[in-house]
């Protein structure tokens, strides 16, 4: 198999996209992806579909896929470092759903999607343990999923207020990507959460990060809260993007020479409320704009 920096050339440029997950539009006023596409195709070049296989796809995701529009498959239910998570039933369901979505690639937070085994009531999302020993199992899982699906699998840095382990998150994911020979999805809002939690400046750790492996960026709104004097960020996917996130996104878009897509995560907001956010994100990436639109 060619190495990732060769393989990345075959990945399509998807441009700006929007994310969804099962039932996201049940909330009043939530974003209708197809309506966004109709009104502003430049903002909805693709749909990133969050998938928990026990739930499957909702009507929005099915309608988008049925129209033959571009997608990516964002997993919400696998601890990549746990071989027992790759059970035949789960893999079969992933293949079936991928067959319907025909995604450009798989991606998803490379952390803990569940405590204990994958089971009802176990679902959560925590960042990986940022230590040397965690790199190998996570990389092995990425490779296993890539081999099982025939699709590139981009690990995303998960959100969190508490991070365990002494490595910097960017160093950790750099090592994971190198070992798995894969691309990366950088969530700018999640990274801002990490930098804040560790007392770092937004761009700490940028030098030395393999930006040429970054294929996708996420930009999302957040809210700062205070718990007993600890300032932390809720990743609320609202329309107010924090300055640290903008700073990271701006620099990431500049450095990521193989960038193929940017997702604006705003699935529970009305279209009119999010259009200014899309415009500002589009301005981060003027040179390589939303070709898929």
């Amino acid at each position: 198999m060619p190495d990732f920096l060769d393989r990345v050339r075959a990945l399509p440029r998807l441009g700006l996209g929007v994310s969804t997950e099962y039932g996201a539009r049940r909330q009043d006023g939530a974003l209708d992806p197809l309506e966004l596409r109709r009104r502003r195709p430049d903002c909805a070049g693709f749909l990133e579909v969050g998938v928990e296989v026990v739930k499957g796809l909702d009507d929005d995701a099915r309608a988008w896929a049925a129209a033959g529009l571009p997608t990516t498959y964002h997993f919400l239910d696998i601890n990549l470092d746990e071989p027992e998570d790759f059970d035949p039933e789960w893999l079969a369901a992933v293949r079936t759903i991928a067959g319907e979505l025909r995604p450009a690639w798989l991606c998803g937070d490379a952390g803990l999607w569940h405590l204990g085994r994958r089971d009802r009531g176990h679902m959560l999302l925590l960042p990986p343990i940022l230590v040397e020993e965690a790199i190998g199992p996570l990389a092995d899982g990425l490779q296993a999923l890539r081999e099982a699906t025939g699709l590139e699998v981009l690990p995303e840095n998960p959100p969190g207020a508490a991070f365990v382990g002494d490595m910097h998150l960017l160093d950790f994911f750099a090592r994971v990507a190198e070992r798995a020979d894969t691309g990366l999805l950088l969530d700018c809002a999640h990274l801002a959460m990490f930098q804040r939690a560790r007392g770092h400046a937004p761009r700490t750790g940028f030098d030395g990060f393999p930006w040429d492996r970054v294929v996708e960026l996420h930009v999302a709104g957040g809210r700062v809260h205070d718990t007993a004097g600890l300032a932390w960020v809720e990743d609320d996917h609202g329309t107010e993007v924090l300055p640290d996130t903008w700073d990271i996104a701006n620099e990431a878009a500049r450095r990521a020479v193989n960038l193929r897509s940017i997702v604006v995560e705003c699935e529970r907001n009305p279209i009119d409320a999010v259009l200014p956010l899309f415009d500002r994100v589009a301005a981060l990436w003027p040179a390589r704009g939303p070709e898929a639109a």
Partner: peptide, 22 residues
């Protein structure tokens, strides 16, 4: 490693246990 985590950071989601009970 666990001791190095700010204990306040473990309490930012006050409903986590309630969801598990649910």
């Amino acid at each position: 490693l666990l001791r190095a985590v700010d204990p306040r950071a473990l309490t930012v989601d006050p409903y986590r246990r309630a969801r598990a009970v649910h």
